[in-house]
Amino acid sequence: MYKFAKVLAFTAVTALFASPLYHASPALAAGSAEPIMKVDWSHSGPFGTFDRASLQRGLQVYREVCSGCHGLRFIAFRNLLEIGLTEKEAKTIAAEYTVMGGPNDEGEMYERPGKLFDYMPSPFDNEKAARASNNGAFPPDLSLIAKARIGGENYLYSLLLGYEEEPPEGVTLAEGMAYNRYFPGHQIAMGPPIDDEAVEYADGTAPTKEQIARDVSAFLMWTAEPAMEARKRMGVKVVLFLIVLTLVLYGVKRKVWADLH
């Protein structure tokens, strides 16, 4: 056992050595951004699950605030059932969007209300159209944004709350840019998107900007990794099973090798 502990330690070191160092570096390269704020998410940890009510509020924030510029192209309306919406609610939301259907019998494409199997329509047809409407900046699709940024959902939360009305002394902002403490380089083309009362929550939750940022960040973590709960659930079972199996195999190994002496 002791020998194997050494092997294990070595393996763990090998596995873990590279990763933190290696992830720290892009942040360094990106400039002196402040360390991001860490939120105590219900979905963190090996047993964490998403807070359904928060995700639904986050969906509302996305629809009312973000969706004007940012798409969510990998999310279909049917996926909304996973965050606790009823089929009827999901259908209603789908029908509020217009999607292209067709071709019909005349060979024409036509607009029709969205259905459960449709995906969230993006606000712009392509990157060029998006840049043309946004002063040259490209509002990224948000489906995977929580996994595409160092710091994940904590970064999103920090970014949403990291705006300063006035840049610090000595910093001149380019035309149309805003100052953000957490954005690499601090100059961000997206203006402060949320403020207190930016939305009105139906469930009575007070819409402070912290709450709004929290809800939409959690929601975007879900859109990035919808299988997270299934993954962790299965992981707990698999690891427990493997521990039992390994203990038994260790017993068998000892028995077999005992013959040698």
């Binding site: 698999v238 099973f241 199996l245 038994v248 195999l249 017993g251 068998v252 028995k255 005992a258 013959d259």
Partner: peptide
Amino acid sequence: DTHDPSRRDFLYVAAAGLGAVGTVG
């Protein structure tokens, strides 16, 4: 072999059984 054969059998059966479960999984 001086070891208790029934414990040995149990270990083998347990290992094979768990191995089969793991394989199916």
